[in-house]
C-alpha cells in the first residue's frame, strides 16, 4: 500500500466513511465551497483611503496622494530625492509606458536582480483594514520587484482600495482565469523581531515601502 492510501484509509476509517455518506458529504463540501461564507469581520466604517493611510503609516509605510497617473513619475522622483536615493529603478514591465525619463528616472521594466536598489510596482488592489498591498505575479508584474530591492515604491489607484482580504478575493475571482502563481499581500517593509523581540525593519525584503495613491485613476 502506498503511503497515500495508508494515510487516507486510516483517516476514512477514523471518520467512519462509507459509500452512502460520501455523496452526501461531498454535497456539503460543494455547498460550502460555493457559499464562501465569510467569518466575523470588523465593519467597513469610514473612508477607505483614510483608513488605508492610517494603517499603512502604522506599519512604517509612507504614503503620498496624487491626483493623476501623469504626475506619478515626478512623485517618485520627489520621494527618491527626499531620501537621497539614486534615480535608477527596476519596475514592472507593465509600467514601462509611463514617462519616467521626464522625471529624471532611469526606469527598466524587468524582473529584479540583487543589485537593484529601487523597485517600482503597481498593485492589483489594496486593503484598508490592514494597510496592505495586493500584488499578483505575472509576466508584466514580476514578484521579485517588490522583494529584492531595498526600497519598494508601489502605485495604487484609490478606486482599488477595498476594505478587507475578502474583497480582494472577490476582485480576483471577478478577474477570471486561473489564479496567478503568487498572490502576495505586502504590509510595510520586511521586519524581524527574532533577537530579544526587538523589531528591526529590513530583514530579507525591502527596508522601506512607499505607496503613491492615485485619486483620479
Amino acid at each position: 500500500m502506498t503511503s497515500r492510501e495508508d494515510i487516507l484509509t486510516r483517516v476514512r476509517e477514523k471518520v467512519g466513511r462509507n459509500v452512502d455518506d460520501t455523496a452526501l458529504a461531498r454535497g456539503d463540501m460543494e455547498a460550502w465551497l460555493n457559499t464562501r461564507r465569510q467569518g466575523p469581520r470588523p465593519p467597513a466604517a469610514g473612508d477607505l483611503l483614510a483608513r488605508f493611510r492610517e494603517k499603512s503609516e502604522a506599519l512604517s509605510t509612507s504614503i503620498d496622494i496624487v491626483a493623476e497617473w501623469s504626475t506619478v513619475p515626478s512623485a517618485v522622483a520627489r520621494y527618491l530625492a527626499e531620501r537621497s536615493l539614486a534615480k535608477t529603478a527596476v519596475g514592472w514591465p507593465l509600467l514601462t509606458g509611463h514617462d519616467w525619463a521626464a522625471a529624471g528616472i532611469a526606469f527598466e521594466g524587468r524582473g529584479a536582480r540583487d543589485a537593484d536598489r529601487i523597485g517600482i510596482t503597481g498593485a492589483f488592489c489594496a486593503i484598508a483594514e490592514t494597510g496592505t498591498l495586493v500584488l499578483l505575479s505575472g509576466h508584466d508584474t514580476p514578484a521579485s520587484v517588490s522583494l529584492l530591492p531595498e526600497t519598494h515604491v508601489a502605485v495604487v489607484a484609490a478606486s482599488r482600495i477595498v476594505m478587507g482580504m475578502e474583497e480582494a478575493w472577490n476582485l480576483l475571482r471577478a478577474k477570471g482565469g486561473a489564479l496567478p502563481r503568487a498572490v502576495n499581500f505586502v504590509s510595510g517593509p520586511s521586519r524581524t523581531g527574532d533577537i530579544e523581540q526587538t523589531i528591526v525593519l529590513g530583514a530579507h525584503g525591502p527596508y522601506q515601502v512607499h505607496v503613491i495613491v492615485v485619486t483620479g485613476a
Binding site: 494603517k55 506599519l59 524587468r110 524582473g111 483594514e129 490592514t130 494597510g131 496592505t132 505575479s137 505575472g138 509576466h139 514580476p142 514578484a143 521579485s144 486561473a178 489564479l179 496567478p180 502563481r181 503568487a182 498572490v183 502576495n184 499581500f185 505586502v186 504590509s187 510595510g188 517593509p189 520586511s190 521586519r191 525584503g205
Partner: peptide, 21 residues
C-alpha cells in the same frame, strides 16, 4: 500584529512567460 508583513498564496509553478518563480 494586525497582519504579518507577507502573506503569500502560492498556486502552481512558474508560468511559461514569467520571470521568476
Amino acid at each position: 500584529q494586525h497582519i504579518s508583513n507577507y502573506v503569500s498564496l502560492l498556486t502552481g509553478v512558474k508560468r511559461p512567460d514569467e520571470h521568476d518563480g
